[in-house]
Amino acid sequence: MTETKAAKKPNPALAKPLQPSSELAAVVGSSPLPRTEVVSKVWEYIKANNLQNPANKREIMADEKLRAVFDGKDKVSMFEMNKHFARHLA
């Protein structure tokens, strides 16, 4: 690996604090957060509430709060989650 790859600069857009919508704020809190922190807090919530499908760990089973974030879907893949977050961050 070259030196420039090892010293890769973080993307400033990912570090910029964004305001969560009221639906997302119910899960992560209402203060502005960087995207990376939003994802971390949602994962904490998913694990604390046992919302991962035990048969398929990549699938998130939405409870009432997450259903509002996931456009009414009962379950989404962990890869779809960020697409849904984008609509709830300004």
Rank of each mutant, 00 (worst) to 15 (best):
1 M>Y: 11
3 E>K: 12
3 E>P: 07
3 E>R: 15
4 T>M: 13
6 A>L: 15
7 A>F: 11
7 A>C: 09
7 A>P: 00
8 K>R: 14
8 K>C: 10
8 K>E: 13
9 K>R: 14
10 P>A: 09
10 P>L: 11
10 P>F: 09
12 P>W: 12
13 A>H: 03
13 A>K: 05
13 A>N: 07
14 L>C: 07
15 A>F: 06
16 K>Q: 04
16 K>N: 00
17 P>Y: 02
18 L>M: 14
18 L>F: 05
18 L>E: 10
18 L>W: 00
18 L>K: 05
18 L>Q: 10
18 L>C: 07
19 Q>S: 11
20 P>I: 02
20 P>R: 02
20 P>A: 02
21 S>L: 03
21 S>D: 04
21 S>F: 04
22 S>M: 14
22 S>F: 10
23 E>V: 02
25 A>P: 03
25 A>L: 03
26 A>S: 11
26 A>W: 01
26 A>P: 03
26 A>L: 10
26 A>T: 04
28 V>F: 01
28 V>Y: 00
29 G>N: 06
29 G>I: 07
29 G>D: 02
29 G>S: 06
29 G>V: 08
31 S>Q: 14
32 P>N: 06
34 P>C: 10
36 T>H: 04
37 E>P: 03
37 E>V: 08
38 V>A: 05
38 V>P: 01
39 V>D: 01
40 S>G: 08
40 S>K: 14
42 V>M: 06
42 V>G: 00
44 E>T: 13
44 E>N: 09
46 I>L: 07
46 I>W: 03
47 K>T: 10
48 A>S: 06
48 A>N: 10
49 N>E: 03
51 L>C: 01
51 L>E: 01
52 Q>P: 00
52 Q>A: 13
53 N>S: 09
54 P>A: 08
54 P>K: 06
54 P>D: 09
57 K>T: 06
58 R>T: 11
58 R>P: 00
60 I>A: 05
60 I>T: 07
61 M>Y: 02
61 M>A: 12
61 M>R: 14
62 A>E: 02
63 D>A: 08
63 D>K: 07
64 E>R: 14
64 E>A: 15
64 E>W: 08
65 K>H: 08
66 L>W: 00
66 L>P: 00
66 L>H: 03
66 L>Q: 00
68 A>M: 01
69 V>C: 04
69 V>T: 01
69 V>Q: 03
69 V>Y: 00
71 D>Q: 14
71 D>T: 10
72 G>Y: 06
72 G>R: 09
72 G>S: 02
73 K>A: 12
73 K>Y: 08
74 D>I: 07
75 K>D: 04
75 K>C: 03
75 K>A: 13
76 V>A: 07
77 S>V: 13
77 S>M: 12
78 M>W: 09
78 M>C: 11
79 F>C: 11
79 F>K: 15
79 F>S: 15
80 E>M: 13
80 E>Y: 06
81 M>G: 05
82 N>I: 15
82 N>D: 14
83 K>T: 12
83 K>W: 08
83 K>Q: 13
83 K>F: 09
83 K>E: 12
85 F>S: 00
85 F>Y: 09
86 A>N: 08
86 A>H: 12
86 A>C: 00
87 R>H: 11
87 R>I: 09
88 H>F: 09
88 H>K: 08
88 H>S: 05
88 H>I: 04
89 L>G: 08
89 L>C: 09
89 L>F: 07
89 L>K: 06
89 L>S: 05
90 A>T: 13
90 A>F: 12
